[in-house]
Simulated scan of single mutants.
Amino acid sequence: MKSITKIISILFLLGSVSACASEQPDSHKTPWDKWYFAFTTPKALPAQVTLLKLLDVDGYASTYRTIDQPQGISVGKWSERNSAGNTQFNKADRLPQIIIFCWDSIIDKKVYQSTLFFTQDTWNKMTTPYPDVLESAKNAYRQMMLIGLAPEGKVRVWLRQYGHSDIPLNDTRITTVSGEELDMCKGVTNFPNGYEYSEGIKKFINEKKYPYGSW
């Protein structure tokens, strides 16, 4: 796992250099100017994302420190149409190749580091049109990605298709580590003094069995 993280770190470094130096046009054409990502959690099982790095398919690396935070209402299992946080800051210009991010699982009282490796299947889904729900003669695109954060460090990824159920990105390779395996996320937390459950969390999990659902 450490070797994979080192390779990713080198890729992000090279991506940052190429992004600054390159003046070549995009090699992966898209029918939209931007795509967006949003985080979601189960109801009353909150998490916070503290740092995110994205390497796109053209080799550009981006770092996000101001991140719109998760919101969610799923109970027991993920919904077919998941609610999620805003995307004011969570946006990118080019198709994603790798996303790595740090997050505090408040319900687990620990820091996780998750890495998402995307495939051609994701890029195809994001660039292939489907009939607009309101105007069937117009094209719409799946340019909203949802990332679910659940107890046990479970991470899921979908694309939103308006008017339909969220589309799971099952080909995405997801790795999550914590504790001594943390690298980029070591010491990165919004809770340096420890985690406390709110009264709402305490009430919700009362007499329920961890991890409070099938995620």
Rank of each mutant, 00 (worst) to 15 (best):
K2L: 08
S3D: 12
S3Y: 03
T5C: 04
K6P: 00
K6A: 12
I8C: 01
S9G: 02
L11F: 07
L13M: 12
L14P: 02
S16V: 00
A21V: 12
E23L: 09
P25D: 11
D26A: 15
T30S: 08
P31K: 06
W32R: 03
W32P: 02
D33F: 07
K34P: 00
F37V: 01
F39Y: 15
T40R: 03
K43C: 00
P46F: 13
P46E: 14
Q48F: 02
L51E: 10
L52P: 01
L52K: 08
V57F: 09
G59V: 00
T63E: 15
T63R: 14
Y64V: 02
Y64G: 03
R65L: 06
I67G: 07
I67C: 10
D68G: 07
G72R: 01
I73R: 11
S74E: 02
S79M: 06
E80Y: 07
T87W: 02
Q88L: 09
A92T: 04
I98H: 04
I99D: 04
I100A: 05
I100K: 12
F101K: 03
C102T: 04
W103G: 00
S105M: 04
I106R: 14
I106F: 12
I107L: 12
D108H: 09
D108Q: 09
K109D: 08
Q113V: 07
S114K: 10
F118E: 01
T119A: 13
Q120P: 00
D121I: 05
K125V: 03
M126R: 04
T127N: 08
Y130H: 11
P131C: 06
P131W: 10
L134S: 04
A137T: 12
K138S: 10
N139S: 15
A140N: 14
Q143A: 02
M144C: 05
M145Q: 08
I147L: 06
I147T: 03
G148M: 02
L149K: 03
P151V: 05
P151W: 10
E152P: 00
G153Y: 11
G153N: 11
V157C: 06
Q161S: 10
G163W: 06
G163D: 06
S165I: 01
I167G: 02
L169D: 01
N170S: 14
D171A: 14
I174M: 05
T176A: 03
G179C: 11
G179L: 13
E181C: 03
L182W: 07
L182M: 08
L182I: 08
L182S: 07
D183Q: 10
M184S: 05
M184Q: 12
C185Y: 11
K186L: 15
G187P: 11
V188T: 13
V188N: 08
T189K: 10
F191D: 02
P192S: 14
P192N: 13
N193K: 14
E196Y: 04
Y197F: 15
I201T: 13
I201W: 01
I205F: 09
N206F: 12
E207H: 10
Y210F: 14
Y210D: 06
Y210N: 05
P211F: 04
P211M: 05
Y212C: 11
S214W: 01
